[in-house]
Amino acid sequence: MIPLLKRIFRTGILTEPPVERSGEMAPIDRLHDEIIAILGRALTIREVDAGSCNGCELEIHALNNAYYNIEGRGIKFVASPRHADMLLVTGPVTKNMENALRIAYDCTPDPKLVVAVGDCGCNGGIFGDSYASCGAVDNVVAVDIRVPGCPPTPLALLHGILSAVKRA
């Protein structure tokens, strides 16, 4: 137990400070302040992988690490679409996932937000539309914000999530 506590103490707080007004985090912090005013610090997200290569998922995972600390900003990933304010969808939407995505969308209570993630989620990416792929997320469900990138960086994702809330 003592080595464990020592390690926690030595690691310290890594979260890149939300109050810092310079660098690439600055616009995100401003957005975040506005979001807090709107939502009172709570946003829940259901992530749906509708056909990605798992690259986008790696970066969405990174949002939860100590540096980006998305939960510290009041944004939380939940297990059920029924508990979610937002669907964060990666693509391309495969034909074999088309139905499951529609069900998840229908299960998400209104008013809901949909963020399409990655080049594939935004426009089908390198996989495009085919016998097996519906392509972009908005070919299947209505999309509010698109976050391009292959995969988008955690900062781009954070920016996209906050922009979607602000727009709503």
Partner: peptide, 11 residues
């Protein structure tokens, strides 16, 4: 499985 099938080989 097969839910992630997006037609890679044909592509």
């Amino acid at each position: 499985l097969g839910y992630q099938h997006k037609g890679v080989e044909k592509r």
